[in-house]
Simulated scan of single mutants.
Amino acid sequence: MQVTIPGQAELDIRHVVFDYNGTLAEDGALIPGVAQQINHFAPQFTFHVITADTYGTVAQALEGVACTVHVIPNGQQDVSKHQYVEQLGKEHVLAVGNGNNDKLMLQTAALGIALIQAEGAAVQAVMAADVVCTSVLDVFGYLATPTRLVATLRN
């Protein structure tokens, strides 16, 4: 996805990095429509899910979904997520999350989207993001229609 935001850098997104719980899932269960959207956009983007897997459900929930799942241990999860984005090439990453452990990832990525859904969002994550949405499905709307970002982010 390439899009020019007036007054900002041009975005060239190749990777989408999602947190799992509170972002793609509610109480450990995948939000309806997410699997279909990831599979739909998989030819255009590489999808990654990085999570502490609080409920132990991520592997089963994302079976058959075109994404890489990376489970991180407890302790310095924010740093682990930040490093993951850095390794992918932060200038090509759209990161999505809702938790305090997502704030560095959101801040580091070329585009950070914080979600405020049923599980809420940490204020620090919201403050670190470029955009805030109320549904993970809105993120896929940006992938389908990148010019929506122009209206939101232009100076």
Rank of each mutant, 00 (worst) to 15 (best):
F47Q: 06
N39T: 02
T23A: 11
Y55H: 14
L153E: 10
H92E: 09
S135Q: 07
L11E: 09
D130M: 02
G120T: 08
L111E: 00
Q44W: 13
N74H: 15
L104D: 10
G28M: 03
C67A: 15
L30T: 03
K81T: 02
G75A: 05
Y84S: 02
G99Y: 07
A122W: 00
A66R: 12
G28L: 00
L11T: 09
A25W: 03
G99D: 00
V49I: 14
V49M: 06
N74E: 15
S80N: 13
M127T: 13
A114V: 04
Y84D: 01
L24P: 07
A61K: 11
M1L: 14
V65R: 01
T54F: 13
I50H: 01
Q2V: 14
G22N: 07
A9W: 13
V71E: 11
R148H: 12
P73M: 06
H82W: 14
V71F: 08
Y84T: 00
D138G: 07
V79Q: 12
F41M: 08
A61M: 11
V71M: 09
A118F: 12
P146K: 07
T152D: 14
D27E: 15
L24K: 02
F41I: 09
I113Q: 01
V71L: 10
L111W: 00
I5Y: 01
C133Y: 11
P6M: 09
T134Y: 14
V93M: 03
Q44Y: 15
V132P: 05
Q83M: 13
T46G: 11
Q77K: 15
A114F: 06
T23P: 08
K103I: 07
Q87L: 11
V3T: 10
G112K: 03
V93Y: 07
E10Y: 09
Y55P: 08
A114D: 05
A109P: 05
L115H: 06
N101K: 02
V49P: 00
D78H: 12
Q124T: 13
Y84F: 12
V96N: 08
R14L: 11
V17C: 04
I13Y: 03
Y20D: 06
L24M: 11
T152K: 14
A42V: 01
V58E: 02
G28P: 03
G33C: 06
K81R: 09
S135G: 06
V17E: 05
N39D: 07
G89V: 06
M105I: 08
I113V: 15
M127E: 15
A109T: 08
V71T: 14
F45W: 11
M127V: 14
E10P: 12
D78S: 14
F45C: 01
V126D: 08
A151M: 13
N98D: 15
V93S: 05
P73T: 09
L94V: 02
V85Y: 05
V34Q: 04
D19Q: 02
A35Q: 07
V79A: 11
A121F: 03
K90L: 06
L149Q: 02
H92W: 07
G22V: 06
V17I: 04
L137P: 03
T57D: 10
T57K: 12
A121V: 01
A144T: 10
P146D: 04
A122L: 02
L24Y: 02
Q37T: 07
T23V: 09
I5A: 04
